[in-house]
Simulated assay, not measured.
Amino acid sequence: MKIAIITITKNSRDLASKILENLTDDPTIIGIDIFHKNVKKTLKSVFREYDCIIGIMATGIMVRNICGLLESKLEDPAVLVMDDSGKHVISLLSGHFGGANEITKRIAEITGADPVITTATDVHGKLGIDSLAKKYYLDIENPDKIKEINSALVRDEFPELFVPSRFEFIFDDPQVNSSYNLTKSNKNDFKVLFGDSEIILRPKKFVIGIGARKDISKENVQSAITSAMNTLKLPVQRIDMISTGEMKRNEKGILEVVSKFDISLKIIHLDKLKNFNYRGYSKSSFVKKKFGIYGVCEPAALIAAGNDSELVFKKTSFNGVTIAVAVASND
């Protein structure tokens, strides 16, 4: 998640600095930028470039300035508003698919603010269909039916959720079980049915990128992947592919883990890594000196995920192994 924080007062700028300091080392936060004043102009420039916008200002200021920028609940970024005394933080827009509700809770933990979440499914303890899609990295094919499905959840009715066999781990998710009737499916996509309403959820391509020191052990590689997935609150079974650079194609520890997990391995040629251009990815002078490239795990993940892929877990080191995660729609 890329976050833009917009401030107006000195107090709000101090709060923004505190948030930045506490989120910098979070691997799921890809980047944070702070903008001071010029709210209208800043919002126009950041609204489509960031995944989340935090305005430390009066709610009215934010509402008046975003109303002309809105498109849809699946395209708009998460928008939060916080008062400059840090008493309340409000999930204002894209609470589910945009992730505003979750980041609101996180900001509240950091600042001691009271989190304000008003989405009906959350208030009633249900997992909205758009929240399910966000949690497990699924595209929603027909979002016009979201309202009907979520309304049924709020009424304490249980839509039918058809789960692909490779996602059977979802049967162990208590949030899902308390919201849906679950049925195993031999299809590749999820299907949600309630009355005449149907939603198709298509899994996004989910790729782990790996870099590692020479002769890395299987145990270290496995531990690194598991740790990254735990941070993302996902099981290893959600991984579609593992990717690394050609200089690591014979690395025994990586090959053994790939075999154990029964996940496909994609080797990225050195030329592709050299020519890779992605704004903001981590660059290592050591890797550049040794292999002539700036990095392995992030570009490997992004290249393997394909066009329009994005990082959801930035380069993180785990005892000799570096891990990054990228996802992309399977169009």
Rank of each mutant, 00 (worst) to 15 (best):
F261A: 08
I19T: 04
F35D: 00
F171W: 10
G125F: 11
Q237I: 10
K40E: 11
P115W: 09
K218R: 12
S178H: 07
I53Y: 02
V81R: 00
Y136R: 06
H36W: 11
K233F: 08
K272L: 12
V321E: 05
T231L: 11
K289A: 15
D173Y: 13
A224L: 08
K290Q: 14
G253H: 04
Y294F: 13
P299F: 08
K315W: 07
K73M: 09
S131N: 11
A324S: 15
L161Q: 10
D196V: 12
D33F: 09
K205H: 12
M241A: 12
F35K: 05
D172H: 11
P143G: 08
N220M: 12
M82W: 03
K214I: 14
S179P: 00
I210R: 00
M247C: 12
P235C: 04
F291N: 02
N177G: 08
M57C: 11
S243W: 00
A133H: 00
K205S: 13
K283D: 01
P159K: 05
D26E: 14
D122I: 12
E246R: 04
F35N: 05
K272Q: 10
I267Y: 03
A4P: 07
C52G: 00
G295R: 04
Q237A: 13
N277A: 10
S17K: 15
N38W: 06
K105Y: 07
G86C: 13
G295N: 00
P143F: 02
G98A: 07
I140A: 01
Y180M: 05
T104V: 12
G292N: 07
N230W: 04
K41D: 11
I263W: 03
K274M: 13
D172A: 13
F167W: 07
A133M: 11
V321Y: 01
S94E: 08
P27H: 10
G320Y: 05
T24V: 15
D215V: 04
K260D: 15
I242F: 08
G68E: 15
T24Y: 13
D262E: 14
L138N: 02
I149C: 09
V116N: 01
F313E: 00
I29W: 03
I149T: 01
K260Q: 10
K272H: 12
C52K: 03
C297Q: 06
F291Y: 13
Y294C: 09
L138I: 02
Y50S: 03
F47E: 07
F276P: 00
D83R: 06
N181M: 08
A133G: 06
V63E: 08
G245W: 02
R279D: 10
S329D: 04
E157Y: 02
L74F: 07
I225Y: 00
R202H: 01
N101I: 03
P235F: 10
R249S: 14
K184I: 11
N319K: 14
D33A: 14
T104F: 09
V46H: 06
I3P: 03
A301E: 00
L193D: 04
L69P: 04
D83C: 11
D156W: 06
S178N: 13
A224N: 06
C297K: 06
I8T: 09
G98E: 01
E168K: 14
I129A: 06
G68I: 03
K272N: 07
Y180I: 05
A58Y: 04
L255V: 09
S227L: 10
G99Y: 01
D51G: 07
N181R: 15
N177S: 15
S91D: 11
L270D: 14
N101M: 04
F162C: 07
G98P: 00
E102G: 09
L302V: 05
R166V: 06
K218S: 13
D33H: 08
